[in-house]
Simulated scan of single mutants.
Amino acid sequence: MAKYIGVMSGTSLDGIDLVLCEIDQSTCTLLKAGEFSYDQSLKTEILDMIHSTTTLKAIGELDVKLGKMFASAINTFIEQNKIYKEEITAIGLHGQTLWHEPNSEHPFSMQLGKSSVVAAQTGLQVVSDFRSNDIANGGQGAPFAPAFHHFVFDRLYKNIAVVNIGGMANITLLGDKYLGWDSGCGNVLLDYWIEKTQNKPYDKEGEFAKSGKLNEALLNKMLDDPYFSKKPPKSTGREYFNPTWLEHYLIKFSDLSDADIQATLTELTAQTIAKDCTDAEDIILCGGGAKNSYLQERIADLSQKSVKTTNDYGVDSDFLEAMIFAWLAHKRIHEEHVDLQSVTGAQKNSILGVITCN
């Protein structure tokens, strides 16, 4: 069995997750895990770049700065856990998504965090740029989680939905075949609103949402957004669900309290997830949203299904996404196609990722 490091920083921009996994053809075992803080100046720079105009120089420099940030976190992780670099086959580096545009005339998905910088500063080979081949073959380039969910859970459980609630929420349906798509916004609007109004990075246990009252009129306006009725394959990101999107709907609801808006945004996430899990018997949550007990409660009430986390099934919900990219690195090193046609809509399955050697 070979060892791989997986690195993930999602659309929430709330930290860098790192894992050390031992992987073979049938198992992916988590050996070590850690979370590292995100450089706040880089977070601000990323959000400013997404929501305003920028320059090629700024993008290029941010690419290098993120590479250095990832490399520093990886080296610290290796040192803290007394990992021998000689034992590591490769790093699976997702990178930081700056823009995801799979439906344009010239589709692409841009992740920053220069792999050559990471390889040079860690002394390890890096597998990155996982989304491009799928998009080149007509796919959405996302979500990738369903392939790993199938690998981990399908032999044990049938007719379940695995839901990763990060900045966006993605659904995997495991049955006779597996399907997956982004249901829409996960934590991205919840985090934005509570940070704006309460100066907190997230709504712990959904307490602020619980203190407010759901506004049905605002909720129904947001649910009318075309994305929610669009049939899969579909994927999304901050380029769509962002402060501009939210403020557009809030214009006519200036009389609502901040807590009422938080409650309504939580219901938006819960309802769109519950609706997309209709065909499953049970729901398993992972990602940051799995820690929001009020959100979990609303999904359970709306879906009338058993809702647990992947922790209940022996997989750490905090680090499952990072494990995905350790596993994808393993697939790339062995030149194995990843079965995503039924998820992304690609014309064929692809070998995903680009290898950068030190």
Rank of each mutant, 00 (worst) to 15 (best):
M1W: 02
G6L: 07
T11G: 10
D17S: 06
D17L: 01
L20F: 01
C21E: 09
I23N: 06
T27K: 10
A33G: 11
D39N: 15
S41L: 12
L42C: 04
M49N: 09
I50Q: 02
S52T: 13
S52L: 09
T55L: 10
L62M: 14
V64P: 03
L66T: 07
F70A: 06
A71S: 09
E79S: 15
A90M: 06
W99R: 10
P102W: 03
S104E: 08
P107K: 01
F108L: 02
L112N: 03
G113M: 06
G113K: 07
S116V: 06
L124N: 05
V126H: 08
R131C: 00
D134Y: 05
F144H: 13
P146R: 15
F153Q: 11
D154A: 15
K158N: 14
N159L: 05
G167E: 13
A169H: 08
T172A: 15
L173E: 01
Y178Q: 11
G184T: 08
Y192S: 04
K196F: 10
L214S: 00
L214H: 01
P226K: 02
Y227R: 12
P232L: 00
P233L: 15
E239G: 07
E239T: 14
N242S: 08
L246W: 00
E247N: 11
Y249G: 09
K252F: 00
S254M: 00
A263W: 00
T264M: 10
T266C: 00
E267A: 11
T272M: 03
A280E: 10
I283Q: 13
I284S: 14
G287M: 05
Q296G: 12
I299M: 09
A300C: 04
T310M: 06
N311C: 09
F319H: 06
F319W: 06
F319V: 03
H334N: 14
E336D: 11
H337M: 12
Q341P: 05
G345I: 10
A346P: 07
N349D: 03
L352A: 12
T356L: 13
